[in-house]
Nucleic acid binder design. Structure first.
Length: 106
DNA sequence: TCAGTGACTGACC
DNA sequence: GGGTCAGCCACTG
């Protein structure tokens, strides 16, 4: 697993509580801005991992496109709400305020 | 080896 | 400003 995935996991784990980031930002931070889809694929395999905040990763519009991949229908939404983030129509409200950019924080 | 797929993005109507 | 389309990378059958 010494691949792009490992880097993705490492970055996502560093996302602070109550903050979120996007697939594209992670990919860009890792050197491949065009590998956003790979990040999404990595999230799909992140179910094997423990304590992995996959719910803090959304698309660049703050839309919870991956909520359907979670166990519960609204589990992802609930987790985010639990961290103080407001959700409306599967989308994060004031996304810019909660957005966490790896390239800026690391 | 090749073609299909996806939790994405940016550019274009 | 919302809907479409076509590239991108890694992985699977």
């Amino acid at each position: 697993m010494n691949s792009f995935f490992k880097k993705v996991y490492k970055v996502v784990r560093k996302v602070p509580f109550g903050r979120v980031t996007s697939y594209g930002s992670i990919a860009s931070f890792l050197g491949d801005p065009r590998a956003a889809r790979v990040v999404g694929w990595a999230m799909n395999n992140s179910h094997n991992l423990k304590n992995f905040p996959a719910h803090r990763v959304v698309n660049r519009n703050g839309l919870l496109t991956g909520k359907n991949h979670f166990k519960g229908t609204n589990l992802m939404e609930q987790l985010l709400i639990n961290e103080g983030i407001s959700i409306k129509n599967d989308q994060i409200i004031n996304f810019d305020d909660f957005f966490w950019d790896p390239s800026m924080e690391l």
